[in-house]
């Protein structure tokens, strides 16, 4: 089976400033269905640029990017928008939910821009509800983002990314704004989705978070310097169990002293 993401010698040069910036200098990459990839690197390594290219938010200066067999590098602005809508799901570091809009309406959003399906508003609603169920937030469907915790907001964002059944789920530092326990919970959601066959690519700079993924890519100065499979992969469920035990233990030891 052909890889979902096929990148051949991709370059991105920004020449808006005085000096052209060569952010990505020839990356070639294949990602197959069902993979769970962490994209790592220091700031300025080009990982965000690569993420924007993968997300069809930007076009490469040179090279070929095929997403699900479609050459994305040649498409115009509106075609890119359609690709993003139908083939990709986005999860951002800052959650990026619409304020003063219920969780359900936030999840519905990508379907309102769906081009090729004529879906009734009842179906849209049902589908959004189903996606909220997947991330375990069905009971919070009517809550506004400011009534939800950071982890819950990120799960709403994941539900939104899932709603159009994307080929690839792209996550840009999804745990960057979360504490360690919530981060593990969110990674648990990703692992569960990945087990159901969803391809996930995420950017992170936290090594331990990267250990929940199956494959780690390290970028430096716009090129991939390391590409390896994770050996002793962390399982979110186990880690959460350990955390809970640790918390309980802390309370136990704290209790007699009080």
């Amino acid at each position: 089976m052909a890889p979902v993401v096929q990148i051949q010698d991709i370059h991105k040069i920004y020449d808006s400033g005085e000096v052209p910036v060569h952010a990505v200098r020839g990356v070639s990459l294949d990602i197959h269905k069902g993979e769970f990839v962490a994209l790592m690197g220091a700031s300025g390594s080009g990982k965000s640029t690569l993420m924007n290219l993968l997300g069809a938010l930007d076009r490469p200066t040179r090279g070929i990017y095929k997403l699900d067999g479609i050459d994305v590098s040649q498409l115009d602005k509106n075609e890119l928008a359609d690709i993003r809508n139908q083939k990709l799901g986005f999860v951002f570091q800052g959650f990026n939910l619409l304020a003063r809009t219920t969780a359900l309406e936030n999840v519905e959003l990508p379907m309102l821009y769906g081009r090729h399906r004529k879906v009734s508003s009842a179906e849209i609603r049902e589908r959004a509800h189903y996606c909220l169920e997947i991330v375990g937030l069905a009971k919070r469907a009517d809550h506004m983002p400011n009534q939800l915790s950071g982890g819950q907001q990120q799960r709403v964002a994941i539900a939104r990314a899932l709603v159009n059944q994307p080929q690839v789920l792209l996550a840009d530092e999804p745990t960057g704004n979360l504490d360690s326990k919530t981060s593990v919970e969110v990674m648990g959601v990703f692992q569960k989705l990945n087990e159901q066959g969803i391809t996930i690519v995420m950017v992170t700079h936290e090594l331990d978070i990267a250990h929940y993924c199956k494959r780690n890519l390290i970028l430096r100065d716009g090129v991939v310097v390391r590409d390896e499979l994770v050996k002793d992969r962390l399982i979110a469920e186990h880690e959460l169990g350990k955390l809970k035990q640790a918390e309980a233990a802390a309370k136990l030891t704290a209790a007699p002293a009080a």
Binding site: L57, K77, N78, N85, F90, N96, Y113, G114, N164
Partner: peptide, 16 residues
């Protein structure tokens, strides 16, 4: 601006 960014990122055309 952010809201517009979100809409564009998840597939809204400029026209929308």
């Amino acid at each position: 601006t952010r809201e517009i960014g979100i809409r564009l990122a998840i597939g809204a055309h400029g026209k929308d």
